[in-house]
Amino acid sequence: MAKQIITLTVNGDEHEIAVAPYQTLLEVLRDDLALTGTKRGCTAGSCGVCTVNGEKGEAVLSCCALAVEWDGRSLTTVEGVQEGNDLHPVQQKFLEYGAVQCGFCTPGLIMSAKALLDVNTSPSEKDINEAMAGAICRCTGHIKVKIAIREAAKVLREREGGVADGQA
């Protein structure tokens, strides 16, 4: 099966890669680009550890996407979330609030939370549940995860110049 050259921008870096049509975005990220922060779990859409963010910041399940469909597009993986030398507020708050146990789900949870906070820095309980339902942690009870997300939202609101203790 003939491979096809695609241009894929990951975390701002443009890559030209030869991919077979049956390679998933997840396989290309991990196996071709050695970006192993994005995890391989169920490979069937139901755990969310493979979540990356698409062009609009939306949550994308990389295990259920064909790499060829991403030709000419750009995405962000957990390796691209950090802001210079500092962690992104979501990462920082996951650390501070111990929202991590074994850490396997963490990249997927971070990318799912970021997809939410990028468009909504005052998420309600319902908004958080909705955004995180597709990303499952096998260790924590999701409670600390949700605390971390609310705390990260506060930081992001402060940055926007809004009130720190809003509804979240």
Binding site: L61, A65, A133, G134
Partner: peptide, 9 residues
């Protein structure tokens, strides 16, 4: 349907 992740695709 599914989750936000699923509905995006």
């Amino acid at each position: 349907v599914g989750s936000k992740h699923v509905r995006n695709a």
